[in-house]
Amino acid sequence: MDEIYITNLEKERESMFEGLLNYFRKRSMWMLYYCTGCGAIELPPTMTSRFDMERFGIGPMATPRQADLLLITGYLSQKTLKRVIRSYEQMQEPKYLVGFGSCPINGGIYWDAYPVINHLEMYVPVDMTIAGCMPRPQAVLDGFQRLMDYIQQGKADGWRRYKENYEWYKRNQDELFARTEPVLKGWKDPFAHMPSLEEVMAEEERRKGGAR
């Protein structure tokens, strides 16, 4: 880990409506929970009658395209990280990522297991973490309210950090993925001989240019 980039918050206030929009963003957080570990079990009580997180406008959503909030609820292995990154990149901006429980923070009780990632924030930007093993619903709700404050203040800007420091994150990710390459390379792309979309587009551009 060489250095961590922090963006300049003042630069981000480009829109005069940003404050108002942040209000809508904090009052309507749709979450996608990535149930890799045991943390997901704490979410049903948080959602249902006892604690009712819907009163803050927080609700579950089915796909990353729709969600604002990605919850990493538990430990992450090296292979599941690829899926987390794909999901995170499919989410629409502004998007927030919450590390849930101690495992995403420092590996938790799996800190010395060979496939488990100890520092999530090296690979994807984490806006907030909720400590605990597991955090109880009260802690979860408290964490979400803290996140709402951050959103209002514009401090939850992981998605910007990810874009600005993409090379750094990408390098870390690639280092990790190099270790998860399958040893037995089995499958072959059956359409490898077909031109790729880029080639087709380029060909078309060329033909259009020629016609003109």
Binding site: Y34, T63, P64, R65, K82, R83, V84, R86, S87, Q90, W187, D189, P190, F191, L197, E198
Partner: peptide, 20 residues
Amino acid sequence: LRDDMDNYSAGEDPREWGVF
């Protein structure tokens, strides 16, 4: 999006499973 396979598939890349 330029790539139609960049689609919701529960985090998986279907191409890794030989699904095109």
